[in-house]
Computed example of a mutant assay.
Amino acid sequence: MKKILGNIALILGTILISFTFILTIIYNTLISTDWYERVYISRIPSALYCIYLIVLLILITNYPILKKINTKIVLSFSLILFILAGLYLVFNADPYLRNADQMWVWNAVKNINNGNYVDFEKGQYLNAHPLQLGLVTFERLIATFSENITFLYFLNLLFNIGSIILLWLISKIVYENTVVQNLTAIISILFTPLLFNTLFVYGNVYGLTFLLGAVYTQLLSLNKKGKKRIIYGICTVTLAGMAYLVKPNFEIGIVAIAIVYFLAIFGKKHYIILALGVLLVIPTVNIALGKIYSYEVNRNISLSRGIPKLTYVVMGLSEDSNGRIGWYTGYNDRAFSDNNYNTDKAEKLAKKDLRIRVDYLKKHKVYTRRIFRLKLISTWTDSTYQSIWNGPLPT
């Protein structure tokens, strides 16, 4: 049964990755770096396919070299290039945060550390986005060392280096193949959004490193015995909790880690403890943060309040005047503010709007197919949005 479930997971994963790969070699999406985030979708120029072919030929012809060369040398050389590029970026980028979530979170960090709790007041940032409290907490710790923006960039660079090393270590466990390990190191530094994310101070970089750390320690816990298995299992739960703390979006990865432990139960039943432990980090972090800040601010703070998640679903199915489909339109913020910052009333409005939108999509099937097609393309074929756009650009 374990082998069958593992093969199913492998097949599904291959299908999803292949689908994304096909999209990226056919389409290219650019998002304007201004506040309007205009979406431009185009086909990949035919000349670029020649580059694809050349890269493929280089990989094929260098296969014997990749097979023989020491993987630690490849990793070291790749890291040196990444570090040099990263240091240049860190110390030459403008030392300010873009006027978006990353700046608002950082402002809240400085306010709270100074004893000012204005961000928790009605209509303010943390009142609308209490799920950011985990990142705020982590960055409050960082701010005790320095509030310098360049320092934040440098810290992101260190975490990115950690992610590359962890990916390489994971490849060593999963694939006992020198070529795969060498390609992992090379492709990691060629994935330029990772480099440019050094300037995106918003928890993504921290969370990715923590999650990869959780995956790595999970693999070790599955391959060790006795006390080492327990120690690595505890590390997995802890790192998964840190990933969720700084970025709740990583709960998808946390659920995946839990599923792996559940599959391992077919071999050894005690893995159910680790599976449940990983899943429990989500409510544990939420409850703990609510309790801590309720005590500090002296008012009731709950991470289940603020802007309802359902408003994001409505926004994700909508198209705005700029032709953006499923991108940020401000609907979530408006639904919350128009209902006097009341979570229950905003959710009630979202349910009503969702029914209206779904009914419209059902009646206009040609339009529905078009917007979902464009939504998929624009979501998966822009390699710069979550890196370049979020850097220190003027708005």
Score class of each variant (00 low, 15 high):
8 I>L: 11
11 I>N: 12
14 T>R: 05
15 I>V: 12
18 S>R: 08
18 S>G: 14
23 L>P: 13
23 L>V: 09
27 Y>L: 05
38 R>P: 07
43 R>Y: 12
49 Y>Q: 09
50 C>V: 02
55 V>A: 11
59 L>I: 02
68 K>D: 10
71 T>Y: 10
72 K>I: 01
76 S>E: 05
78 S>P: 06
78 S>C: 07
83 I>L: 11
95 P>K: 03
96 Y>D: 15
102 Q>N: 11
108 A>S: 15
112 I>V: 05
114 N>V: 04
117 Y>N: 04
118 V>N: 14
123 G>E: 04
125 Y>L: 08
146 S>P: 15
152 L>W: 08
159 F>N: 14
162 G>P: 14
163 S>R: 10
163 S>M: 09
165 I>V: 13
165 I>L: 14
169 L>R: 06
175 Y>L: 10
177 N>A: 03
178 T>S: 08
179 V>S: 07
185 A>W: 00
194 L>D: 09
201 V>Q: 14
206 Y>K: 15
206 Y>G: 08
207 G>K: 09
212 L>Q: 02
214 A>C: 06
223 N>V: 00
226 G>I: 03
227 K>Y: 09
230 I>G: 12
234 I>M: 15
237 V>G: 14
243 A>G: 10
251 E>G: 11
252 I>A: 08
253 G>N: 13
253 G>R: 15
254 I>G: 14
256 A>I: 10
258 A>H: 04
262 F>W: 05
270 H>V: 02
276 L>H: 05
280 L>S: 15
291 K>F: 03
296 E>Y: 07
297 V>L: 08
303 L>H: 05
311 T>C: 01
311 T>L: 01
315 M>N: 00
324 R>E: 09
332 N>P: 08
336 F>K: 02
339 N>T: 00
341 Y>D: 03
341 Y>V: 03
349 L>C: 14
350 A>E: 03
355 R>I: 02
357 R>W: 01
359 D>R: 02
362 K>Q: 11
363 K>E: 15
364 H>V: 11
381 T>M: 13
381 T>K: 05
388 I>G: 13
395 T>A: 09
